[in-house]
Design a protein around this nucleic acid. Structure first.
Length: 823
RNA sequence: GCCGCGAUGGCGGAACUGGCAGACGCACGGGACUUAAAAUCCCGGAUCCCUUUUAGCGGAUGUGAGGGUUCGACUCCCUCUCGCGGCACCA
């Protein structure tokens, strides 16, 4: 047997052994600190890709290391099994989504097992199982009871290709997150979850994640939530059914400069006006038919005067009301006061439609303001009556107060975050547990009737409304209240619901009475380390933080945040670009594994870049790791093919080499341990392991007791990275299964210390010589040594020494410059 | 436009808290072993200059560009360039 030839057989052998012996199955244990290590679960597309491999390998190293350092580790895996691709496959290949999904799970499970990851497979879940989605429905009902769920007709994002609506988070640059089609705006009645009720807490919670989550993600979420503090101002309207219009502004200090009002085309005021004004009606129909992208990325602003005027409450000025396409219905009140002198957009609009521009803020510096642009910064108020002379910040508060006391306005906080649209007009998802009764109205399904089972054998065409609409056995039901004929809701839930709480279900996946047993989740939760891609920063990672807070409010979990630490791994690319089917530049993990084995693959992925960084795939680099793996195998087999070698204890040469090796080992082990503990720098940890291997190979007494012991520890140290190889070598050394349960070796801090150090000697900051001294040599001795050096003597010559900079064991710098001598 | 991150040899990447830039690996060059190749092992790498010692424990330059602080800067500060990511008519 050799690794080079038989790695495949050997790797499979150990995978089977791990499976049979169930050594990674977890249980509650109060004698050890717990560690919940979670990787973002995969969508069962059928094939794992390099991104998966990277994600799971990083997770496995962390889980393994924690296990070896005395933690009770929980490392589960499962399947995010609902979703559109299953339906698309059904349409294309005429396979039921369920079968397609389960087939994929089966094949991906095999592929995953081939990576040798230390999962607790006994906790495996798939979100498409009724035992799981029943609890999605249960949570939905709980939220319904708490008024956190509502149905409402409003303009929503519609993907024409996926034939379903999308949440705000799932539209990127006006395109569908899944298929990149241009998203349209449609006025539809849909189910929403009131995530905005939690906006402040989601924002607040980010403070606790500071330092443990990547700064990047925290900032992205902050931006996404988009809190802004401002003022709502009521403008009285002359004539008409509406007697006032409320606007939102963050710049109340500019209120005196408002010279017109603009209202979003979707605003009910606009519709009202259109009823009796054909020009306005025409404008509306034209504008409302534009796609989201067309609207949002339009260069030119358009609008139309509606025929009505509003009264500015602070100065009673009569100003025209426009309907304009640059006003967003979904933000603030859908109406804005326009101050062209101090807002560039209003400025452009005013120029185009010849509206007055009135300056009310002067820069503090007193400089003149450009005539061809708005002055948008804070300054000093002018032309603002009693508020003249106030700085902007104070003016905002004073004007808001002034309005409040007169009931003309109030302080208001707005968020960019919108309520989560969760209904989908698709089949392969959790049925929304709602019954419509002609007499009793909209009713949540009773808890005892859960789950509402997703019917099988449903025809999926990919067009029209929800496929469930055409399943009478599903749709038709009786009202539990009055017994009348009633119908079921036929939309299903966004699959992001499934992934919002799966980490809690993992703890207690078989529970049929509860979503999970609190006693168990209280032991494991929160997740100590979460690992996944950054693309979920403003999707899954916001939704599940929200969901967790709801579970907290329901008394189901005892912490406010679900994921204590987050690691966002970088992408895996090929020649710098993302691997994708359409580009045809995919490196298949299966191909690589069959060629080099999974240990080599794991090692390369960890070695080529730190986990957070993008990793560019490189076949040559893989070969380097392949060589290293074989080198280790060769080292251990050569040494262990013969008995321990003995050398005389009075051989000075031997003792000196031996001490040197021991020192190198402890020094490197210290670094390896620190590299892993500190930000999971596996690339440098592996580099140190390579150094240690090199040191062993060049040790002249290889095979003595010391080197044998170090080799044993080397095999243990390697086991989180190359578990199969380590098991094989561990067995070969005659040790007891399993190396993966061995304690992580401890370094001796004394031995790790350098006995002698090489110190750079600089003159005026320039390196001149290096001297080797005993560790801890004092300053005086260092000065003596340095001054007696011929080279230094000649460099110093007869220059005056102004200062010595001496850092013990680190550096000597002689300063002959006199730049600071006076001080 | 706003916010954030980054830029180090031919390449991936190292460098503690401001203290020897280039760890480790890849690629490359040379050598050993071999009939040969593969594999393996060993050695060598930035640029320019210097010199009676052509190899030296010699000098200078060098971490995107320019400036600054410091005895000393890949690291801190300012300005700029390029690249990546997020948000974007958010009032």
């Amino acid at each position: 047997m050799s690794w080079e030839k038989d790695f495949n057989t050997l790797e499979l052998k150990w995978e089977q052994r791990w499976e049979e012996t169930k050594i990674f199955y977890s249980s509650l244990d109060n004698n050890k600190p717990k560690f919940y290590c979670l990787v973002m679960f995969p969508y069962p597309s059928g094939k794992i890709h390099m991104g998966h491999v990277r994600n799971y390998v990083i997770g496995d190293v962390i889980a393994s290391y924690k296990r070896m350092t005395g933690y009770n580790v929980f490392h589960p895996i499962g399947w995010d099994a609902f979703g559109l691709p299953a339906e698309n496959a059904a349409i294309k290949h005429n396979i039921p989504p369920e079968k397609w999904t389960w087939d994929n799970i089966a094949s991906m499970r095999t592929q995953l097992k081939r990576l040798g990851i230390s999962y607790d497979w006994s906790k495996e879940i798939a979100t498409c199982e009724p035992e799981y989605y029943k609890w999605n429905q249960w949570f939905f009902i709980k939220m319904f009871e708490r008024n956190l769920v509502y149905k409402k007709k409003s303009p929503v994002n519609w993907c024409p290709k996926c034939q379903t609506v999308l949440a705000n988070e799932q539209v990127h640059d006006g395109l569908c997150w899944r298929c990149d089609s241009e998203v349209l705006q449609k006025e539809l009645e849909q189910w929403f979850i009131k995530i905005t009720d939690y906006a402040e807490r989601l924002l607040e919670g980010l403070k606790y994640l500071e330092g443990n989550w990547p700064q990047e993600v925290i900032i992205m979420q902050k931006n996404w939530i988009g809190k802004s503090v401002g003022t709502e101002v009521k403008f009285r309207i002359e004539n008409g059914k509406f007697n006032e219009l409320t606007v939102f502004t963050t710049r109340a200090d500019t209120l005196f400069g408002a010279t017109f009002i603009s209202v979003a085309p979707e605003h009910e005021f606009s519709r009202y006006v259109a009823e009796n004004n054909s020009k306005v009606a025409e404008y509306l129909s034209h504008t409302l038919n534009k796609s989201l992208k067309e609207r949002k990325f339009a260069k030119d602003k358009t609008g139309i005067f509606c025929g009505y005027y509003a009264i500015n409450p602070v100065n009673n000025q009569k100003i025209p009301i426009y309907i304009a396409d640059y006003v967003l219905m979904e933000y603030g009140t859908g109406a804005i006061m326009c101050v062209p002198a101090h807002d560039q957009r209003d400025f452009e609009f005013a120029k185009k439609y010849n509206l007055p521009i009135k300056e009310v803020i002067k820069p503090v510096s007193g400089e003149t303001v450009l005539p061809d642009a708005a002055y948008e910064l804070d300054g000093i108020m002018v032309n603002s009556g009693e508020f003249d002379g106030l700085p902007s910040s104070e003016g905002r508060e004073r004007i808001t107060e002034w309005l409040s006391t007169r009931n003309l306005g109030n302080k208001k906080i707005n968020y960019r975050l919108k309520d989560w649209l969760i209904s989908r007009q698709r089949y392969w998802g959790t049925p929304i547990p709602i019954i419509y009764c002609p007499r009793c109205g909209t009713l949540p399904v009773l808890e005892k009737d859960l789950p509402v089972i997703l019917p099988k054998n449903v025809k999926i065409t990919g067009v029209g409304e929800s496929p469930l609409k055409y399943v009478p056995e599903f749709v038709n039901t009786k009202c539990y209240n009055c017994g009348s004929n009633a119908t079921r809701e036929t939309d299903t839930m966004d699959t992001f619901v499934d992934s919002s709480w799966y980490y809690a279900r993992y703890c207690d996946p078989q529970n049929t009475n509860l979503c999970f047993d609190k006693e168990i989740t209280n032991y494991w939760l929160p997740v100590d380390q979460y690992i996944g891609g950054i693309e979920h920063a403003c999707m899954h990672l916001i939704y599940s933080r929200f969901w967790h807070k709801v579970m907290y409010d329901l008394g189901l979990v005892s912490t406010e945040e679900p994921f204590t630490k987050l690691l966002t791994q970088g992408m895996v690319t090929l020649n710098g670009s993302v691997m994708s089917k359409s580009k045809g530049n995919i490196v298949e993990p299966e191909t690589i594994i069959s060629k080099y084995g999974s240990d080599t693959t794991r090692l390369f992925i960890l070695f080529a870049a730190p986990p957070q960084k993008q990793l560019d795939w490189n076949d040559k680099g893989v070969e380097g790791c392949w060589r290293f793996v074989n080198r280790i195998y060769r080292l251990v087999t050569t040494v262990y093919s013969s008995e321990e070698k003995k050398f005389p204890e009075d051989d000075k040469e031997y003792i000196s080499h031996r001490n040197q090796l021991l020192h190198t080992y402890h020094k490197l082990l210290k670094k390896i341990t620190q590299d892993i503990e500190k930000e999971y720098q596996f690339n440098t940890a592996i580099a140190r392991i390579m150094e240690l291997t090199n040191a062993l190979f060049s040790y002249p007494y290889l095979g003595d007791s010391v080197s044998r012991e170090i080799i044993q520890n080397l095999v243990i140290i390697l086991s989180p990275f190359t578990p199969h190889l380590s098991e094989q070598l561990w067995e070969l050394m005659g040790e007891k299964y399993s190396v993966r349960l061995q304690p992580w070796p401890k370094y001796d801090p004394e031995l790790a210390k350098e006995k002698v150090v090489e110190i750079p000697v600089q003159v005026d900051g320039k390196l001149k010589i290096r001297i080797t001294v005993e560790t801890g040599t004092d300053e005086e001795t260092l000065k003596e040594i340095v001054l007696s050096n011929e080279k230094i003597k000649s460099v110093i010559n007869n220059k005056k020494i102004f200062k010595w900079v001496i850092l013990k064991d680190k550096l000597v710098n002689i300063v002959t410059k006199s730049t600071v001598e006076l001080s």
